[in-house]
Design a protein around this nucleic acid. Structure first.
Lengths: 246, 246
DNA sequence: GAAGTCGTTCCACAATACGGAATAATCGAC
DNA sequence: GTCGATTATTCCGTATTGTGGAACGACTTC
Protein backbone atom coordinates (compact mmCIF):
# COMPACT_ATOMS: atom_id res chain seq x y z
CA UNK A 1 0.00 0.00 0.00
CA UNK A 2 2.55 2.55 1.04
CA UNK A 3 5.42 2.16 -1.35
CA UNK A 4 8.07 3.71 0.87
CA UNK A 5 7.37 1.26 3.65
CA UNK A 6 7.46 -1.68 1.25
CA UNK A 7 10.77 -0.51 -0.10
CA UNK A 8 12.17 0.27 3.32
CA UNK A 9 11.28 -3.20 4.52
CA UNK A 10 12.82 -4.78 1.45
CA UNK A 11 16.03 -3.06 2.46
CA UNK A 12 15.72 -4.32 6.03
CA UNK A 13 15.09 -7.75 4.61
CA UNK A 14 18.33 -7.64 2.70
CA UNK A 15 20.17 -6.65 5.85
CA UNK A 16 18.74 -9.65 7.67
CA UNK A 17 19.13 -12.05 4.77
CA UNK A 18 22.59 -13.32 5.50
CA UNK A 19 23.50 -14.49 8.99
CA UNK A 20 27.22 -14.21 8.49
CA UNK A 21 27.30 -10.85 6.76
CA UNK A 22 26.95 -7.96 9.13
CA UNK A 23 27.34 -4.88 6.98
CA UNK A 24 26.42 -3.88 3.49
CA UNK A 25 27.25 -1.14 1.01
CA UNK A 26 24.58 0.96 -0.65
CA UNK A 27 25.27 -0.46 -4.07
CA UNK A 28 24.95 -4.00 -2.79
CA UNK A 29 21.61 -3.15 -1.26
CA UNK A 30 20.49 -1.38 -4.42
CA UNK A 31 21.35 -4.40 -6.48
CA UNK A 32 19.63 -6.89 -4.17
CA UNK A 33 16.47 -4.81 -3.98
CA UNK A 34 16.59 -3.73 -7.63
CA UNK A 35 16.04 -0.14 -6.57
CA UNK A 36 17.93 2.89 -7.88
CA UNK A 37 20.88 3.81 -5.71
CA UNK A 38 19.58 7.26 -5.00
CA UNK A 39 16.31 5.83 -3.79
CA UNK A 40 18.07 3.40 -1.50
CA UNK A 41 20.14 6.22 -0.17
CA UNK A 42 17.15 8.37 0.61
CA UNK A 43 15.30 5.56 2.34
CA UNK A 44 18.34 4.60 4.36
CA UNK A 45 18.77 8.19 5.46
CA UNK A 46 15.25 8.14 6.81
CA UNK A 47 15.70 4.80 8.49
CA UNK A 48 18.93 5.94 10.10
CA UNK A 49 17.09 8.80 11.74
CA UNK A 50 15.25 6.23 13.85
CA UNK A 51 18.12 3.88 14.52
CA UNK A 52 16.63 1.19 12.30
CA UNK A 53 19.82 1.25 10.28
CA UNK A 54 23.24 2.38 11.42
CA UNK A 55 26.20 3.45 9.39
CA UNK A 56 29.66 2.23 10.21
CA UNK A 57 31.70 5.45 9.96
CA UNK A 58 34.97 3.85 8.86
CA UNK A 59 33.66 1.84 5.96
CA UNK A 60 30.53 3.92 5.27
CA UNK A 61 28.65 0.68 5.13
CA UNK A 62 25.31 0.01 6.73
CA UNK A 63 23.99 -2.45 9.28
CA UNK A 64 20.84 -3.01 11.28
CA UNK A 65 20.32 -0.43 14.00
CA UNK A 66 19.76 -0.86 17.69
CA UNK A 67 16.11 0.21 17.64
CA UNK A 68 15.09 -3.29 16.57
CA UNK A 69 16.56 -4.65 19.73
CA UNK A 70 15.21 -1.86 21.84
CA UNK A 71 11.62 -2.38 20.78
CA UNK A 72 12.09 -6.14 20.55
CA UNK A 73 13.13 -6.34 24.19
CA UNK A 74 10.05 -4.41 25.20
CA UNK A 75 7.80 -6.89 23.46
CA UNK A 76 9.61 -9.84 24.99
CA UNK A 77 9.07 -8.28 28.35
CA UNK A 78 5.33 -8.41 28.09
CA UNK A 79 4.64 -11.13 25.63
CA UNK A 80 1.40 -12.90 26.30
CA UNK A 81 2.47 -16.46 26.73
CA UNK A 82 -1.09 -17.58 26.96
CA UNK A 83 -2.01 -16.47 23.47
CA UNK A 84 1.13 -17.99 22.04
CA UNK A 85 0.64 -21.24 23.89
CA UNK A 86 -2.99 -21.56 22.88
CA UNK A 87 -2.18 -22.13 19.21
CA UNK A 88 0.38 -24.79 19.94
CA UNK A 89 -1.81 -26.45 22.52
CA UNK A 90 -4.75 -26.70 20.19
CA UNK A 91 -2.64 -28.41 17.59
CA UNK A 92 -1.26 -30.80 20.15
CA UNK A 93 -4.67 -31.62 21.62
CA UNK A 94 -6.05 -32.31 18.17
CA UNK A 95 -3.13 -34.57 17.31
CA UNK A 96 -2.94 -36.67 20.45
CA UNK A 97 -6.67 -36.47 21.20
CA UNK A 98 -6.14 -35.82 24.89
CA UNK A 99 -6.52 -32.79 27.13
CA UNK A 100 -3.62 -30.36 27.26
CA UNK A 101 -2.84 -27.95 30.08
CA UNK A 102 -0.63 -24.95 30.65
CA UNK A 103 0.52 -24.13 34.18
CA UNK A 104 2.48 -21.12 35.36
CA UNK A 105 4.30 -20.82 38.66
CA UNK A 106 3.20 -18.31 41.25
CA UNK A 107 4.69 -18.46 44.70
CA UNK A 108 4.52 -21.98 46.02
CA UNK A 109 1.81 -23.02 43.61
CA UNK A 110 1.17 -23.20 39.93
CA UNK A 111 -1.93 -21.81 38.30
CA UNK A 112 -3.75 -23.52 35.46
CA UNK A 113 -3.53 -20.79 32.85
CA UNK A 114 -4.97 -22.54 29.83
CA UNK A 115 -6.75 -25.76 29.00
CA UNK A 116 -7.59 -27.38 25.68
CA UNK A 117 -9.81 -30.40 25.78
CA UNK A 118 -9.85 -33.11 23.22
CA UNK A 119 -13.15 -34.34 21.89
CA UNK A 120 -12.31 -37.68 23.41
CA UNK A 121 -12.10 -36.30 26.92
CA UNK A 122 -14.85 -37.59 29.17
CA UNK A 123 -14.47 -34.92 31.79
CA UNK A 124 -12.01 -32.12 32.29
CA UNK A 125 -9.69 -32.57 35.20
CA UNK A 126 -8.17 -29.23 36.00
CA UNK A 127 -10.10 -26.00 36.18
CA UNK A 128 -8.75 -22.80 34.81
CA UNK A 129 -7.23 -20.63 37.50
CA UNK A 130 -6.91 -23.58 39.84
CA UNK A 131 -3.99 -23.39 42.22
CA UNK A 132 -1.97 -26.55 42.75
CA UNK A 133 1.05 -26.82 45.05
CA UNK A 134 4.28 -27.12 43.13
CA UNK A 135 5.15 -30.58 44.39
CA UNK A 136 1.98 -32.17 43.03
CA UNK A 137 1.74 -33.54 39.52
CA UNK A 138 4.10 -33.86 36.58
CA UNK A 139 3.60 -30.31 35.27
CA UNK A 140 4.47 -28.69 38.56
CA UNK A 141 7.39 -30.96 39.17
CA UNK A 142 8.96 -29.94 35.85
CA UNK A 143 8.59 -26.36 36.96
CA UNK A 144 10.30 -27.07 40.26
CA UNK A 145 13.00 -29.09 38.56
CA UNK A 146 13.85 -26.21 36.24
CA UNK A 147 13.71 -23.44 38.80
CA UNK A 148 16.72 -21.91 40.44
CA UNK A 149 17.81 -24.79 42.74
CA UNK A 150 17.86 -22.74 45.91
CA UNK A 151 14.44 -21.39 45.29
CA UNK A 152 13.16 -24.88 44.52
CA UNK A 153 14.60 -26.13 47.76
CA UNK A 154 13.01 -23.34 49.74
CA UNK A 155 9.67 -24.06 48.10
CA UNK A 156 9.84 -27.78 48.81
CA UNK A 157 10.76 -27.05 52.40
CA UNK A 158 7.73 -24.87 52.74
CA UNK A 159 5.41 -27.40 51.13
CA UNK A 160 6.59 -30.64 52.70
CA UNK A 161 6.97 -30.56 56.48
CA UNK A 162 8.77 -33.88 56.96
CA UNK A 163 12.55 -33.59 56.36
CA UNK A 164 12.83 -37.19 55.27
CA UNK A 165 10.14 -36.75 52.60
CA UNK A 166 11.75 -33.48 51.54
CA UNK A 167 15.01 -35.23 50.78
CA UNK A 168 13.20 -38.03 49.01
CA UNK A 169 11.32 -35.54 46.85
CA UNK A 170 14.34 -33.44 45.94
CA UNK A 171 16.10 -36.52 44.61
CA UNK A 172 13.82 -36.82 41.59
CA UNK A 173 14.32 -33.27 40.37
CA UNK A 174 17.76 -33.53 38.72
CA UNK A 175 16.57 -36.40 36.54
CA UNK A 176 13.48 -34.47 35.48
CA UNK A 177 15.61 -31.47 34.60
CA UNK A 178 18.03 -33.66 32.72
CA UNK A 179 15.39 -35.56 30.74
CA UNK A 180 13.31 -32.51 29.96
CA UNK A 181 10.06 -34.13 31.01
CA UNK A 182 8.17 -35.65 33.91
CA UNK A 183 5.45 -38.26 34.19
CA UNK A 184 3.09 -38.75 37.09
CA UNK A 185 0.34 -41.28 37.78
CA UNK A 186 -2.74 -40.16 39.62
CA UNK A 187 -0.93 -37.68 41.84
CA UNK A 188 -3.54 -35.04 41.56
CA UNK A 189 -6.46 -36.94 40.10
CA UNK A 190 -7.19 -40.61 40.60
CA UNK A 191 -6.92 -42.59 37.40
CA UNK A 192 -5.19 -39.89 35.41
CA UNK A 193 -1.60 -39.79 34.31
CA UNK A 194 0.15 -36.60 33.31
CA UNK A 195 3.06 -36.04 30.94
CA UNK A 196 4.74 -32.65 31.20
CA UNK A 197 7.59 -30.59 29.75
CA UNK A 198 8.91 -27.18 30.82
CA UNK A 199 8.50 -23.89 28.99
CA UNK A 200 11.60 -21.77 29.14
CA UNK A 201 11.49 -18.00 28.67
CA UNK A 202 13.90 -15.74 26.82
CA UNK A 203 16.05 -15.33 29.91
CA UNK A 204 16.45 -19.08 30.31
CA UNK A 205 14.09 -19.14 33.25
CA UNK A 206 11.23 -21.58 33.51
CA UNK A 207 7.99 -19.70 32.98
CA UNK A 208 5.56 -22.58 32.92
CA UNK A 209 4.84 -26.17 31.99
CA UNK A 210 2.79 -27.85 29.33
CA UNK A 211 1.14 -31.14 30.23
CA UNK A 212 -1.03 -33.81 28.68
CA UNK A 213 -3.57 -35.54 30.86
CA UNK A 214 -4.46 -39.16 29.97
CA UNK A 215 -6.70 -41.73 31.65
CA UNK A 216 -4.35 -44.31 33.08
CA UNK A 217 -6.09 -47.27 31.50
CA UNK A 218 -5.36 -45.94 28.01
CA UNK A 219 -1.64 -45.79 28.55
CA UNK A 220 0.69 -48.20 26.82
CA UNK A 221 4.45 -48.01 26.71
CA UNK A 222 4.34 -47.00 23.09
CA UNK A 223 1.77 -44.25 23.64
CA UNK A 224 3.76 -42.92 26.57
CA UNK A 225 6.86 -42.54 24.43
CA UNK A 226 4.90 -40.68 21.81
CA UNK A 227 3.27 -38.36 24.32
CA UNK A 228 6.58 -37.55 25.97
CA UNK A 229 7.97 -36.72 22.61
CA UNK A 230 5.05 -34.53 21.63
CA UNK A 231 4.94 -32.73 24.96
CA UNK A 232 8.63 -31.89 24.80
CA UNK A 233 8.30 -30.77 21.22
CA UNK A 234 5.30 -28.52 21.89
CA UNK A 235 6.84 -27.00 25.00
CA UNK A 236 9.93 -26.21 23.00
CA UNK A 237 7.84 -24.63 20.28
CA UNK A 238 6.16 -22.34 22.80
CA UNK A 239 9.50 -21.52 24.37
CA UNK A 240 10.82 -20.56 20.97
CA UNK A 241 7.89 -18.36 20.15
CA UNK A 242 8.08 -16.43 23.37
CA UNK A 243 11.67 -15.65 22.53
CA UNK A 244 13.88 -18.23 24.19
CA UNK A 245 17.32 -18.20 22.62
CA UNK A 246 18.36 -21.82 22.38
CA UNK B 1 13.08 13.00 4.35
CA UNK B 2 10.58 10.29 3.54
CA UNK B 3 7.34 11.38 5.09
CA UNK B 4 5.75 7.94 5.28
CA UNK B 5 8.62 6.59 7.28
CA UNK B 6 8.53 9.54 9.64
CA UNK B 7 4.86 9.04 10.16
CA UNK B 8 5.13 5.29 10.47
CA UNK B 9 7.78 5.69 13.13
CA UNK B 10 5.70 8.22 14.99
CA UNK B 11 3.02 5.56 15.17
CA UNK B 12 5.50 2.99 16.42
CA UNK B 13 6.65 5.52 18.97
CA UNK B 14 3.14 5.88 20.30
CA UNK B 15 2.87 2.11 20.63
CA UNK B 16 6.05 2.04 22.69
CA UNK B 17 5.26 5.15 24.67
CA UNK B 18 3.40 3.60 27.58
CA UNK B 19 4.89 0.62 29.35
CA UNK B 20 1.64 -0.46 30.92
CA UNK B 21 -0.56 -0.10 27.89
CA UNK B 22 -0.30 -2.97 25.43
CA UNK B 23 -2.85 -2.19 22.75
CA UNK B 24 -4.22 0.91 21.11
CA UNK B 25 -7.14 1.87 18.96
CA UNK B 26 -6.72 3.69 15.67
CA UNK B 27 -8.36 6.83 16.93
CA UNK B 28 -6.08 6.96 19.95
CA UNK B 29 -3.07 6.66 17.69
CA UNK B 30 -4.47 9.27 15.32
CA UNK B 31 -4.94 11.68 18.17
CA UNK B 32 -1.51 11.09 19.67
CA UNK B 33 0.23 11.53 16.35
CA UNK B 34 -2.08 14.31 15.15
CA UNK B 35 -2.57 12.49 11.88
CA UNK B 36 -5.87 11.95 10.09
CA UNK B 37 -7.46 8.62 10.94
CA UNK B 38 -7.47 7.41 7.36
CA UNK B 39 -3.77 8.11 7.07
CA UNK B 40 -3.04 6.19 10.25
CA UNK B 41 -5.11 3.34 8.96
CA UNK B 42 -3.25 3.15 5.68
CA UNK B 43 0.15 3.26 7.34
CA UNK B 44 -0.83 0.63 9.86
CA UNK B 45 -2.06 -1.63 7.07
CA UNK B 46 1.36 -1.41 5.48
CA UNK B 47 3.16 -2.01 8.75
CA UNK B 48 0.98 -5.02 9.50
CA UNK B 49 2.10 -6.60 6.26
CA UNK B 50 5.56 -6.92 7.79
CA UNK B 51 4.56 -7.88 11.28
CA UNK B 52 5.69 -4.57 12.68
CA UNK B 53 2.20 -4.05 14.02
CA UNK B 54 -0.38 -6.70 14.82
CA UNK B 55 -4.09 -6.41 15.17
CA UNK B 56 -5.94 -8.06 17.99
CA UNK B 57 -8.92 -9.61 16.20
CA UNK B 58 -11.38 -9.42 19.09
CA UNK B 59 -10.95 -5.78 19.95
CA UNK B 60 -9.67 -4.63 16.55
CA UNK B 61 -6.99 -2.80 18.41
CA UNK B 62 -3.33 -2.69 17.47
CA UNK B 63 -0.11 -3.64 19.17
CA UNK B 64 3.53 -4.00 18.26
CA UNK B 65 4.29 -7.02 16.10
CA UNK B 66 6.80 -9.79 16.58
CA UNK B 67 9.08 -8.68 13.76
CA UNK B 68 10.71 -6.28 16.19
CA UNK B 69 11.58 -9.20 18.41
CA UNK B 70 12.63 -11.36 15.52
CA UNK B 71 15.09 -8.88 14.10
CA UNK B 72 16.01 -7.66 17.57
CA UNK B 73 17.03 -11.14 18.65
CA UNK B 74 19.27 -11.44 15.62
CA UNK B 75 21.14 -8.36 16.71
CA UNK B 76 21.24 -9.53 20.31
CA UNK B 77 22.79 -12.74 19.13
CA UNK B 78 25.72 -10.80 17.78
CA UNK B 79 26.26 -9.12 21.10
CA UNK B 80 27.74 -12.08 22.88
CA UNK B 81 28.24 -9.96 25.94
CA UNK B 82 24.68 -10.67 26.85
CA UNK B 83 25.09 -14.42 27.07
CA UNK B 84 28.31 -14.05 28.99
CA UNK B 85 26.82 -11.48 31.31
CA UNK B 86 23.74 -13.50 32.12
CA UNK B 87 25.65 -16.26 33.85
CA UNK B 88 27.54 -13.83 36.02
CA UNK B 89 24.42 -11.79 36.70
CA UNK B 90 22.42 -14.79 37.82
CA UNK B 91 25.12 -15.79 40.25
CA UNK B 92 25.33 -12.26 41.59
CA UNK B 93 21.56 -11.91 41.93
CA UNK B 94 21.34 -15.20 43.79
CA UNK B 95 24.15 -14.23 46.13
CA UNK B 96 23.11 -10.71 47.02
CA UNK B 97 19.40 -11.41 46.65
CA UNK B 98 18.71 -8.20 44.80
CA UNK B 99 17.89 -7.34 41.19
CA UNK B 100 20.78 -6.98 38.81
CA UNK B 101 20.80 -5.00 35.57
CA UNK B 102 22.95 -4.70 32.49
CA UNK B 103 22.94 -1.46 30.51
CA UNK B 104 24.64 -0.73 27.22
CA UNK B 105 25.27 2.76 25.85
CA UNK B 106 23.67 4.01 22.67
CA UNK B 107 23.95 7.64 21.70
CA UNK B 108 23.02 9.83 24.61
CA UNK B 109 21.17 7.07 26.41
CA UNK B 110 21.72 3.60 27.73
CA UNK B 111 19.43 0.67 27.05
CA UNK B 112 18.52 -1.95 29.61
CA UNK B 113 19.82 -5.09 27.92
CA UNK B 114 19.33 -7.69 30.60
CA UNK B 115 17.68 -8.02 33.95
CA UNK B 116 17.86 -10.72 36.59
CA UNK B 117 15.45 -10.43 39.44
CA UNK B 118 15.98 -11.85 42.86
CA UNK B 119 13.18 -13.78 44.45
CA UNK B 120 13.18 -11.05 47.09
CA UNK B 121 12.33 -8.35 44.58
CA UNK B 122 8.94 -6.85 45.14
CA UNK B 123 8.63 -5.38 41.70
CA UNK B 124 11.03 -4.94 38.86
CA UNK B 125 12.19 -1.41 38.39
CA UNK B 126 13.66 -1.16 34.94
CA UNK B 127 12.01 -2.61 31.89
CA UNK B 128 13.98 -4.39 29.25
CA UNK B 129 14.71 -2.14 26.31
CA UNK B 130 14.06 0.95 28.34
CA UNK B 131 16.10 3.97 27.33
CA UNK B 132 17.58 6.12 30.08
CA UNK B 133 19.65 9.28 29.54
CA UNK B 134 23.30 8.75 30.36
CA UNK B 135 23.40 11.27 33.18
CA UNK B 136 20.73 9.48 35.21
CA UNK B 137 21.54 6.72 37.65
CA UNK B 138 24.68 5.01 38.84
CA UNK B 139 24.97 2.57 35.93
CA UNK B 140 24.83 5.24 33.29
CA UNK B 141 27.19 7.51 35.17
CA UNK B 142 29.83 4.80 35.25
CA UNK B 143 29.44 4.51 31.52
CA UNK B 144 29.87 8.25 31.07
CA UNK B 145 32.82 8.30 33.44
CA UNK B 146 34.64 5.63 31.46
CA UNK B 147 33.86 7.00 28.02
CA UNK B 148 36.31 8.95 25.94
CA UNK B 149 36.36 12.27 27.89
CA UNK B 150 35.51 14.48 24.93
CA UNK B 151 32.58 12.34 23.97
CA UNK B 152 31.39 12.31 27.55
CA UNK B 153 31.59 16.09 27.66
CA UNK B 154 29.67 16.42 24.44
CA UNK B 155 27.01 14.08 25.75
CA UNK B 156 26.66 15.93 29.03
CA UNK B 157 26.41 19.22 27.18
CA UNK B 158 23.61 17.81 25.10
CA UNK B 159 21.75 16.37 28.07
CA UNK B 160 22.10 19.17 30.59
CA UNK B 161 21.25 22.63 29.29
CA UNK B 162 22.54 24.70 32.20
CA UNK B 163 26.33 25.31 31.97
CA UNK B 164 26.67 25.59 35.74
CA UNK B 165 25.04 22.18 36.24
CA UNK B 166 27.14 20.76 33.46
CA UNK B 167 30.33 21.70 35.27
CA UNK B 168 28.96 20.40 38.53
CA UNK B 169 28.08 17.09 36.91
CA UNK B 170 31.38 16.65 35.13
CA UNK B 171 33.20 17.02 38.44
CA UNK B 172 31.99 13.66 39.73
CA UNK B 173 33.16 11.65 36.77
CA UNK B 174 36.92 11.43 37.46
CA UNK B 175 36.23 9.99 40.93
CA UNK B 176 33.83 7.42 39.51
CA UNK B 177 36.38 6.43 36.93
CA UNK B 178 39.09 6.25 39.56
CA UNK B 179 37.06 4.23 42.07
CA UNK B 180 35.63 1.89 39.50
CA UNK B 181 32.07 2.22 40.78
CA UNK B 182 29.19 4.64 41.28
CA UNK B 183 26.31 4.81 43.73
CA UNK B 184 23.09 6.71 43.25
CA UNK B 185 20.06 7.17 45.48
CA UNK B 186 16.66 7.37 43.88
CA UNK B 187 17.86 9.17 40.78
CA UNK B 188 15.73 7.18 38.44
CA UNK B 189 13.33 5.47 40.81
CA UNK B 190 12.16 6.86 44.11
CA UNK B 191 13.29 4.75 47.04
CA UNK B 192 15.79 2.71 45.09
CA UNK B 193 19.52 2.95 45.29
CA UNK B 194 21.79 1.66 42.58
CA UNK B 195 25.33 0.38 42.77
CA UNK B 196 27.15 0.11 39.47
CA UNK B 197 30.45 -0.84 37.91
CA UNK B 198 31.66 -0.52 34.31
CA UNK B 199 32.19 -3.32 31.83
CA UNK B 200 35.24 -2.76 29.70
CA UNK B 201 35.61 -4.38 26.28
CA UNK B 202 38.71 -5.91 24.76
CA UNK B 203 39.74 -2.61 23.23
CA UNK B 204 39.63 -0.86 26.60
CA UNK B 205 36.40 0.88 25.76
CA UNK B 206 33.43 0.87 28.07
CA UNK B 207 30.73 -1.32 26.56
CA UNK B 208 28.21 -1.32 29.37
CA UNK B 209 27.53 -1.22 33.07
CA UNK B 210 26.35 -3.74 35.59
CA UNK B 211 24.21 -2.48 38.42
CA UNK B 212 22.44 -3.73 41.51
CA UNK B 213 19.15 -2.14 42.50
CA UNK B 214 18.32 -2.05 46.20
CA UNK B 215 15.42 -0.54 48.12
CA UNK B 216 16.95 2.36 50.02
CA UNK B 217 15.57 1.28 53.36
CA UNK B 218 17.54 -1.95 53.24
CA UNK B 219 20.85 -0.21 52.85
CA UNK B 220 23.41 -0.13 55.63
CA UNK B 221 26.99 1.00 55.41
CA UNK B 222 28.17 -2.56 55.67
CA UNK B 223 25.82 -3.85 52.97
CA UNK B 224 26.82 -1.01 50.69
CA UNK B 225 30.47 -1.93 50.98
CA UNK B 226 29.66 -5.54 50.15
CA UNK B 227 27.50 -4.64 47.17
CA UNK B 228 30.13 -2.28 45.77
CA UNK B 229 32.64 -5.04 46.08
CA UNK B 230 30.42 -7.62 44.44
CA UNK B 231 29.37 -5.28 41.62
CA UNK B 232 32.97 -4.43 40.80
CA UNK B 233 33.96 -8.05 40.95
CA UNK B 234 31.12 -9.22 38.68
CA UNK B 235 31.65 -6.43 36.18
CA UNK B 236 35.32 -7.30 36.06
CA UNK B 237 34.46 -10.95 35.53
CA UNK B 238 32.26 -10.07 32.55
CA UNK B 239 34.92 -7.74 31.18
CA UNK B 240 37.48 -10.49 31.46
CA UNK B 241 35.30 -13.04 29.74
CA UNK B 242 34.42 -10.84 26.79
CA UNK B 243 38.05 -9.76 26.53
CA UNK B 244 39.17 -13.35 26.26
CA UNK B 245 36.96 -13.94 23.23
CA UNK B 246 37.05 -10.77 21.12
C1' DG C 1 -34.43 2.03 16.77
C1' DA C 2 -31.94 6.17 16.90
C1' DA C 3 -27.63 8.15 17.94
C1' DG C 4 -23.40 7.59 18.95
C1' DT C 5 -18.46 5.56 18.27
C1' DC C 6 -15.63 2.93 16.49
C1' DG C 7 -12.79 0.92 12.03
C1' DT C 8 -12.61 0.75 7.07
C1' DT C 9 -12.89 2.17 2.16
C1' DC C 10 -13.04 5.53 -1.62
C1' DC C 11 -11.24 8.83 -4.90
C1' DA C 12 -10.12 13.60 -6.92
C1' DC C 13 -6.25 16.24 -6.02
C1' DA C 14 -1.61 17.98 -5.35
C1' DA C 15 2.09 17.31 -2.44
C1' DT C 16 5.49 14.06 -2.20
C1' DA C 17 8.89 10.92 -3.30
C1' DC C 18 11.11 9.60 -7.48
C1' DG C 19 15.40 8.57 -10.01
C1' DG C 20 18.58 9.93 -13.76
C1' DA C 21 22.32 12.64 -13.87
C1' DA C 22 25.75 15.60 -11.90
C1' DT C 23 29.00 15.91 -8.13
C1' DA C 24 31.86 14.73 -4.41
C1' DA C 25 34.63 11.54 -1.91
C1' DT C 26 37.61 7.46 -1.76
C1' DC C 27 40.60 4.12 -3.28
C1' DG C 28 44.29 1.92 -5.99
C1' DA C 29 47.45 1.15 -9.54
C1' DC C 30 51.38 2.85 -11.83
C1' DG D 1 51.14 12.72 -7.67
C1' DT D 2 47.87 11.61 -11.50
C1' DC D 3 44.49 9.31 -13.70
C1' DG D 4 40.68 6.25 -13.70
C1' DA D 5 37.46 3.40 -11.46
C1' DT D 6 34.18 2.87 -7.88
C1' DT D 7 32.13 4.41 -4.20
C1' DA D 8 28.53 7.64 -1.65
C1' DT D 9 25.86 11.87 -1.82
C1' DT D 10 23.14 15.76 -3.64
C1' DC D 11 20.09 18.01 -7.00
C1' DC D 12 15.76 19.05 -9.16
C1' DG D 13 11.98 18.82 -12.80
C1' DT D 14 8.42 15.44 -13.17
C1' DA D 15 4.44 12.45 -12.42
C1' DT D 16 3.57 8.92 -9.47
C1' DT D 17 2.26 8.31 -5.09
C1' DG D 18 0.25 9.12 -0.84
C1' DT D 19 -3.22 12.24 1.01
C1' DG D 20 -7.34 13.08 3.91
C1' DG D 21 -12.19 14.56 3.95
C1' DA D 22 -16.19 12.27 3.42
C1' DA D 23 -19.07 8.34 2.95
C1' DC D 24 -19.78 3.76 4.54
C1' DG D 25 -20.23 -0.13 7.55
C1' DA D 26 -20.08 -2.60 11.87
C1' DC D 27 -21.07 -2.43 16.70
C1' DT D 28 -22.49 -0.67 21.05
C1' DT D 29 -25.32 2.15 24.06
C1' DC D 30 -29.15 4.55 25.69
Amino acid sequence: MVQSIDRAMSIILVLTSDESKTHWSISEIAEKTSLPISTVHRLISSLMKYGLIQQIPETKQYKLGITWMEIGLRILDKIDMRAVARTVMEQLAADVRESVYLNIPDGHDAIVLERVESSMTVRSIDNLGERIPLHIGAANKTILANMEPREAERTVMALIPDPEQQREFMKQLPAIRENGYAVSYGEKTEGTASIAAPIIGYNQRVVGALSIGVPTYRITEELLATLIDRAKQSAKEISKRIGATP
